[in-house]
Design a protein around this nucleic acid. Structure first.
Lengths: 151, 151
DNA sequence: CATTGGGTAATCATTTTAGTAACTAATTGC
DNA sequence: GCAATTAGTTACTAAAATGATTACCCAATG
């Protein structure tokens, strides 16, 4: 998959470390080592999905619109996905004379419905807060100290 | 995702319609509307995973090495995947000065372990036989008649 | 020993995606 | 109201991934 999901979750986690203020796209871009325009594109998608709020002008930026424990990775996943299924059949065009080929796309979508739903359910059970806690456990000193007792 | 998974499952389903004989890569390629070399690459991977058996020379080809009800989509999925995780972090290189960025890859892998396992479990519960039955239901006349009573 | 068909590697073309720049719009402060 | 700042958006470029194609090798059969 793209790195969009990784960048988006990273940005969400970063913002959950600064709940009280607005984070600029430049700040996020610096942390992720990418470019502000790319971050803004992702933030736009997250905003349309209602996950973040943004503000223009000096002192502007973005912040989570909900506490991190109420934002699931599934929401982030859906926010940044265009419209493609997980197991997109691509643009294969089976021979129409092959009776098996004519319905392969519908058949695959059907049998993959359950696996896909299983994935979505599992993703819905992981919150940004979970991600933040996991990340904090990996960087005990600085992050934990700088944000101790913050909820 | 790639169309490799779709092509591979299609080929497996096709071969499960012709269990008693060897299917050539050219025949498969014609059905899928792609090229024999591509099919052979996929068949090589499926062979290394022990899912199909191939034979060279005149009259050669490939066939399933097990009955279709004993081959799961997870096995196909694993056979054709290189080594990338489902949610690959791509080649993002977070700013090493950001304490959050340094461990993001490991953190993501950790929290995504359960969703990934949920997907794999669900995939392991779908067999090629399931796929075949679903496909047959969509093309009742020709396929069902031509392969009635075959197991 | 010639033909058939898989095994594999190399190359080309297409598509996708990330990177970049440029411009617009909105908000703040002077 | 003017200037500065920052998000919003679009367009373009570059690079990476992927499928398509070709070519050549090896094995097995007759």
């Amino acid at each position: 998959m793209n790195s969009r999901f990784a960048v988006a979750t990273f940005a969400m986690t970063f913002m959950s470390l600064a709940l009280e203020r607005l984070v600029t796209s430049e700040e996020l871009a610096a942390s992720i080592n990418t470019h502000p325009a790319l971050v803004r594109r992702l933030l736009s998608m997250l905003r349309e999905a209602g996950l973040v709020e943004t503000q223009l002008g000096p002192g502007g930026g973005a912040r989570l619109s909900r506490p991190p424990e109420r934002i699931s990775l599934l929401e982030v996943y859906d926010a940044i996905r265009a419209d493609d299924d997980l197991f997109a059949v691509g643009r294969i065009s089976p021979n129409p004379e092959c009776p098996l080929g004519t319905g392969i796309q519908a058949t695959l979508s059907c049998v993959l419905a359950k696996p896909q739903e299983a994935l979505r359910t599992a993703l819905s059970r992981v919150s940004i807060r979970t991600l933040l806690d996991e990340a904090a456990a990996r960087v005990p000193k600085s992050v934990a100290a700088a944000h101790a007792g913050r909820d």
